[in-house]
């Protein structure tokens, strides 16, 4: 029984996890390419990696520096 539950739960979370993964990868690629960010660069890496979903989004909104 516990196995069924966990595989079902996995199925629920799958779309959310995929979206989260894409967000994180896009944010990371952008972070690597960026020469400068608003504030120290390494802080943004921590934010992108550690804060699920919200991390990449706040990086895109606040971290990128307009040229």
């Amino acid at each position: 029984m516990p196995d069924i539950i966990s595989s079902d739960l996995l199925l629920i979370l799958l779309p959310i996890m995929v979206i989260q993964l894409i967000l994180m990868i896009v944010a990371l690629v952008d972070w690597v390419k960026a020469e400068e960010t608003n504030g120290p660069k390494w802080v943004w890496l921590v934010i992108i990696l550690l804060l699920n979903i919200i991390g990449p989004v706040i990086y895109f909104i606040f971290g990128r520096r307009q040229k």
């Binding site: 779309p15 979206i19 896009v26 979903i53 989004v57 895109f60 990128r64 307009q66």
Partner: peptide
């Protein structure tokens, strides 16, 4: 500035949650 990528993803996420 990647708005075309992250904004639709976030909107999907909000809607399906």
């Amino acid at each position: 500035n990647k708005k075309w990528i992250w904004f639709p993803l976030v909107m999907i996420l909000i809607a399906i949650m």
